[in-house]
Amino acid sequence: MNRLMIFPIIITVIQLISFGHLYYIHKYGSGQFPADFIELNILALCNIGVLISAYFLYYKADIKLSIWLVPILLAIITIIFLLVIYVIMWINKYK
């Protein structure tokens, strides 16, 4: 396996594990404390770091590996999902 392919694969595996943990916390966590929402915020912040690293390691690289598109897509989906939740919360606050 190419050494350049290891980093995006590790990022993708970590993202998938964190999505699974987030689902588990949402499904079986305590209902009194919104731990899943706090973890989604932390995950979105970490995915901003993924997007920044992808900018330097994918877009600025001479050899563009298409494997980088998977963690980039997962990061964008997570951030958009969090923004949609914030918009829904904002709409329900002023309803």
Rank of each mutant, 00 (worst) to 15 (best):
M1V: 13
M1R: 12
M1A: 14
M1E: 10
N2E: 13
N2L: 05
N2Q: 08
F7N: 07
I9D: 06
I11H: 00
I11F: 02
T12D: 05
T12R: 02
T12E: 05
V13D: 08
V13Y: 08
V13N: 07
Q15E: 10
I17Y: 08
S18K: 03
S18Y: 06
S18F: 05
F19P: 00
F19G: 01
H21S: 15
H21C: 15
L22W: 07
Y24K: 11
Y24G: 06
Y24D: 12
Y24L: 12
H26K: 10
K27V: 09
Y28E: 11
Y28K: 12
G29N: 02
Q32C: 10
F33Y: 08
F33P: 00
F33L: 07
D36W: 05
D36V: 01
F37A: 02
F37E: 11
E39S: 04
L40F: 04
N41A: 02
L43Q: 03
L45V: 04
C46V: 11
C46G: 12
N47G: 01
I48L: 04
V50T: 11
V50K: 03
I52A: 02
S53Q: 09
A54Y: 02
Y55P: 00
L57A: 08
Y58G: 03
Y59T: 08
Y59G: 03
K60F: 07
K60H: 08
D62K: 11
K64R: 15
I67K: 02
L69E: 14
P71C: 03
I72L: 09
L74D: 05
T78F: 01
T78A: 07
I80D: 10
I80L: 15
F81Y: 10
F81V: 09
L82F: 07
L82S: 04
V84M: 12
I85F: 06
Y86H: 10
Y86Q: 08
V87P: 02
V87F: 14
I88W: 09
I88P: 01
W90P: 00
W90Q: 04
I91S: 15
K93H: 12
Y94F: 15
K95F: 15
